[in-house]
Design a protein around this nucleic acid. Structure first.
Lengths: 208, 208
DNA sequence: ACCTGAACACCGTTCAAGT
DNA sequence: ACCTGAACACCGTTCAAGT
């Protein structure tokens, strides 16, 4: 228990773990491969065995970020509640993540010299697929597919934008929460929503 | 005309000019002070006379970015057209800017170790003040001030989010334009809008 | 297969010295 | 006031060599 063999076969995981911490504390710019190697107790050349590049490590980090965010959204979705409630919870989870891991979020949505790493791309796609799941039964015939896509993108864009405002400290967390509510109210009450989202789970509550 | 004295008294401007080009072509990460000095034809220590830090130069760059964006929004506002038309034009200008200068936009809205430079902060405030101007006569009594703030923030957040989706290549420019239209339609038709925005310029078209 | 350690070119920052 | 050029510590990346 006193002495642990460190650089076993899990150096890759150890590096990513340490990197996530550094990014949260010092931002992406504060992340150096040499420093990372030092913290992990290996030589500065060692990371090369697992990541060809600094960018490759950043890609892996972004991929993990997408996976974590997807999991959080999935958790927020849950089985219970009406459409409106589910959306509000998802929005909250999304914005919370973006605030708590602002630097990671920036990394995930950077334009950058194209995250060509398919891993990042796939992880991002999984997130959007989960968001799609928030909108009830998948394309059940009576809903317009274009409107559905548009609604989903607008939802994602709005969450992203609110998160950006909070992360850049233009508004505080409380105002961010207020914005989430206002945005959801606005979006769910729109014509686009009625065109895009199936609400026939509980038809007895429908009343215009 | 053949030989120009370069490092006159405008080195600061020359550095910022060159920096803007580099950022657009290679992103913020691709910007090096030494390389910048080389391109401008001065020694690597020279920039220090005008910018204490690399970060100071980035701050100045962000400040200029906010000023340019504010000008673009102001231009898009114009005097003509109804509220809906003005908003659409502003939204389009905002998203266009964010796409054409994606790296600069990232720099402007970074969380970062706090852009404590008051210049950046003031320039950002000026942008938001201009956005406020898009919403008609300033707090003319019959409009709710909280709703007004909420609407303005939601507008900014939505634009920001759409821009982020396009800049990160999740959607293309055409889809981005479609999203802008959908977002404006949704926002302008909302209850929040009627609470926040004065529409009494042409009261004869009012019909609920 | 994984890690070490020297080597190379580059960087930001500091600072005495020039003009 | 503004710029030069040497100096320092740090970095990413490469690569032969070890185990």
């Amino acid at each position: 228990m006193t002495e642990r063999p460190f650089h076993h076969g899990n150096l890759r995981a150890a590096l990513l773990d340490e990197a996530a911490t550094v990014v949260r504390e010092s931002g992406v710019d504060g992340l150096s491969l040499r420093d990372l190697a030092r913290r992990t107790g290996v030589s500065h050349g060692a990371p090369r065995s697992h990541f060809v590049d600094r960018q490759a490590l950043l890609d892996a980090l972004a991929e993990l970020g997408f996976q974590r965010l997807t999991a959080a959204v999935h958790r927020a979705l849950g089985p219970e509640g009406d459409l409106s409630g589910r959306f509000r919870r998802v929005a909250q989870a999304y914005v919370d993540f973006a605030i708590d891991d602002a630097a990671l979020m920036e990394l995930m949505f950077q334009a950058k010299a194209a995250h060509r790493s398919t891993g990042v791309h796939d992880a991002a796609d999984a997130l959007f697929a989960t968001l799609d799941g928030a909108m009830g039964p998948r394309s059940s015939g009576d809903v317009d597919d274009d409107s559905r896509t548009l609604f989903k993108l607008l939802f994602a864009a709005t969450m992203q934008g609110i998160a950006s405002l909070v992360a850049s400290r233009r508004i505080d967390r409380a105002q961010g929460n207020g914005l989430v509510d206002a945005a959801m109210e606005t979006m769910l009450g729109s014509d686009l929503a009625t065109r895009a989202v199936t609400v026939r789970d509980e038809p007895d509550t429908a009343e215009a």
